[in-house]
Simulated scan of single mutants.
Amino acid sequence: MYCDDSRGTDIDHFQPLAVAPLRAFAWDNHVLACSFCNSNAKRDAYPVGADGVCLLVDPTAEDPARHLFLMLRSGEYGHHTAKGEQTIRVFGLNRPDLVQGRQNAFCLACSNLRDWYRQQQNGNPAAHQVAQALRDSPFIDVVHAMTRLTPQLTNSVVDEETVPALEHWRSVYGS
């Protein structure tokens, strides 16, 4: 739920037990997390602003894109808001393994989009399977970030061979 690396092995209490022990069994306080995010990064961290509102993006209740943006070529996250900034810091979203994973995912997503588009144009039923594999892949945040690119940015971030595939993907699966 935090780093989008698809290695969810732990159940994390979004609001830590050290902060809110009475929320130990509240279902909306349980999220699937990788062991690094849960045990090494977040632990009991739960930063709050002066108004007492949590400064972490709650992935079960908020659209992370309101607070974070992914720089596709570098694989790093930037922030729009204080919540985004704290989320990057607390979860270590720009740690080297995640950055490398997102860079690899961007390369693979471009290739898979081109393959999917070619199969779509040829009426190949395998196109559906390629699309499903892409939607189920680790670092799906990369594909979501690609679909949210403005037309002006698309041409500078994605190679020219991938642009029509991405435009068609948006028309089929939305942005």
Rank of each mutant, 00 (worst) to 15 (best):
Y2P: 00
D4N: 12
D4V: 08
R7P: 01
Q15E: 15
A20G: 06
A20T: 04
L22C: 06
A24N: 11
A24Q: 12
F25W: 09
C37E: 00
S39D: 12
R43Q: 13
R43K: 15
A50P: 09
D51Q: 07
C54N: 08
L55G: 00
L55M: 11
V57W: 00
P59D: 01
P59E: 03
A61Y: 07
P64M: 14
H67P: 02
L70D: 01
L72A: 04
S74P: 01
E76N: 09
E76W: 07
G78M: 09
T81L: 07
G84N: 02
R89H: 10
V90R: 02
G92C: 04
L93C: 05
P96A: 13
L98E: 02
Q100M: 10
Q100D: 15
Q100P: 07
A105K: 06
A109V: 15
S111H: 11
L113Y: 04
D115I: 15
D115F: 12
Y117R: 03
Q119S: 09
Q119R: 15
Q120R: 10
Q120D: 11
Q121D: 11
N122A: 14
N124S: 14
A127I: 10
Q129C: 12
A131L: 11
F139K: 00
I140P: 01
T147C: 02
R148L: 12
L149P: 01
L149A: 02
Q152M: 12
S156V: 15
D159Y: 09
T162L: 02
P164T: 13
L166G: 03
V172M: 09
V172R: 06
V172D: 04
Y173V: 06
Y173Q: 06
G174Y: 11
